[in-house]
Amino acid sequence: MRNHALWEKLRPYVMIAPAMAGIVLFVVYPVLYLVRLSFYKYNLMNKAKSKFIGWDNYRKLFGNDDFYKSLVNTVWYTVGVVALTMILSLLIALWLRRSSRWNALVQAGIFTPHIVSIVSIALLWLWMMEPSHGLLNYVLQSLGLPTSTWLQSSKTALVSVIIVSVWHGIGYYALILVAALQSIPPSIYEAAALDNAGRFKLFFRITLPLISPQLFFVLVIMTIGSFKVFDTVQVMTDGGPNQATSTIVYYIFRYRSTNIGYSSATGVVLMLVVGALTFLYFRLLSRKLHYQ
């Protein structure tokens, strides 16, 4: 009888044990291990020579100008990508909200970059952005517009990387927002029309609040994703010129073999920054969201 009661108590835990084992093994353990590594001067060749150095890696990190440069780059990159992608994908979604065959075609077209590898896309843009032979400058020139140095100058390199990332992501986020817009019952708009609402009011008082959960989702997901940007930078600029496009993850990557403890400390800082930002979003915005 007592055995039976015990089993009743244990059963839920036994049931979720396999899933928990997976989470512990693949999520909790790696994160803890990352934190542990960040306190070590780790020797990849000879594990026995690794030694615990406390906060040294962090001290070094926060005393390094390159780290700040990467952090600032990452913040600008994130602000640029998130703002541009959100505004543009919302505009595209508003344009494509009416479901018609033509709109479906356009939507598929805009979505296509998302199914192409970012490496291929980065290479393609690298070629198009080539200052003297690239397509972009050719087009600008033939339109009589000033050309750009694109990736080759520290002034324009970050913006160029932002353009590529925005171009890559826009279709996916527009798709999410189109679905959100299409789920708004038409009768709400009809009621608003009868209430004599102008276009401006309609957008800011009806449409925007109704798709706020999806906008918030896009904001959070994109912020997290942008903070972790790596592949575009690696392929297009190698962090250059003159560290103009070096981001946090690229910074981590640079120390991957020379100083893995230092790398890990950067990773932990990135994790905390992204975590704090997400927390902030939820605190600041969740009351403005309208879940139905």
Partner: peptide, 14 residues
């Protein structure tokens, strides 16, 4: 004119 809709069409966010 004013209209009452079958599904009421109340603005859910207000």
């Amino acid at each position: 004119v004013a209209m009452v809709f079958q599904n009421y069409a109340i603005y859910p966010t207000m």
